[in-house]
Nucleic acid binder design. Structure first.
Lengths: 227, 227
DNA sequence: GACGAATTTAACCGCACGGTTCATTGTCAG
DNA sequence: CTGACAATGAACCGTGCGGTTAAATTCGTC
């Protein structure tokens, strides 16, 4: 039985316990922030004890960073599912924007963790990157689309992949992150299905317009949708 | 001396002390969040003591809400300075977007407080509004522009003031709020002057395009700038 | 100048909460 | 069986921190 040197040595295997802790911790940190979260509250949600959290993760900040990393990995995996091969650049961009918009909406915990990380001036994210020497997120999709769009003469000469990604993120992120205060100030109509469709549409229109060399052609993209 | 029933009864007048506390508290809450902030740290920054904070504001949450209200009031006052009378709707909108973009950038503490409030699902904002029965923020400017733009036939029929405000906020807010994580992931080039100009430009283009009934006319807005 | 109200200080309290100690149990190698 | 060690539980600890007590100081008033 030397094969199982790592797995399930113990009654309940450690990996399962760890991922159980991570699951609950993510939800708690996302809801209450780093200082707002109590380790005991996390423990209460798991099948294990406070003791084990420190045993496996050392201290609160390390657990928080583990959660952050775990969540980033999962989200990136989700993003990788999108396939834009074979689409015209403008259509691919439209698809990417819509996908991102929906994707962010489906991952509110990730959004909240990023918000929290921004409150902390990205201190932990920086530490993690310095540690692993790798960027946590890539923008390969946008870059490919930009190249193709430029080559086809569809996009403006001055389009920048990072700026484009910024635009896409701005809409998609804000839509989830600021939902509470926006709704508190201006009502929640925009966050019901009809409103969300409207916003997504506006985002696509807006971004494509600022990218296309011939903005007037934008309507063809929407017509093709309906037709 | 009965006239001074309220003001400066005491050696150091209470209003000054209170606003001193508010000033420091705002900075602390903005930097560290509600649970992350220590009342003693606030006290250390003021000319008064921890005891006085509780004396004047009751408890931590009430102080936080006072800060929030104070900050909202100040920001709204700042926004009121903008004068769009006499501008064509499209030009007025462009000005408003650019103003908002810069305005948010000049008020990072406000942005951070809103972020924090979103983490708390706008619990305190809701409480404050229920208390005073008034909306903390208005969108009069956008509404006026929309009316004028529709009347002039410049804007699409389906333009909605709230959605428009959402778009403007999304860009302007994200630019400040997510600066840290975005820079951590993709570099800080976009946050230097040249990058910011580029983003602001893209925002104006994008939003106007999704609003104008004839998007192709957008370039006239930029040409007039340079000419 | 004495009374009462407003303002301020210093010292204190209780406990929540991050983190630890220590002893115990389960698992495997030999 | 036994020694080594990973995994776990219960009980504990130190202190940071939100909030309070009680008493002193300053001021307006009569």
């Amino acid at each position: 039985m030397e094969k199982e040197t790592k797995s399930r040595r113990w009654k309940q295997n450690p990996e399962a316990v760890k991922s159980d802790i991570l699951r609950v911790a993510r939800s708690e940190f996302a809801r209450k922030g780093l200082s707002g979260t109590r380790i005991e509250d996390i423990a209460a949600g798991t099948k294990t004890s406070k003791r084990m959290i420190f045993y496996y993760f050392g201290d609160k900040e390390s657990l928080y960073e583990a959660v952050l990393e775990d969540c980033y990995a999962e989200v990136r995996a989700g993003e990788a599912e999108l396939d834009l091969e074979g689409l015209a650049p403008d259509r691919a961009l439209k698809t990417l924007i819509e996908f991102t918009f929906d994707h962010h909406r489906r991952n509110p915990e990730f959004i909240r963790l990023v918000m929290i990380e921004n409150i902390h001036e990205a201190r932990h994210l920086d530490r993690m990157e310095r540690l692993h020497g790798q960027n946590l997120r890539a923008i390969g999709a946008v870059e490919k689309i930009c190249e193709a769009g430029l080559a086809a003469g569809l996009f403006r000469e001055d389009v920048s992949p990072v700026a484009l990604h910024w635009q896409i993120s701005a809409f998609s992120f804000f839509n989830v992150a600021n939902r509470a205060t926006f709704a508190s100030n201006f009502g929640s109509a925009l966050f019901e299905p009809a409103g969300q469709a409207l916003l997504k549409d506006a985002a696509v229109r807006g971004i494509l317009c600022s990218v296309l060399s011939q903005p007037e052609r934008i309507d063809t993209l929407f017509q093709r949708d309906q037709g």
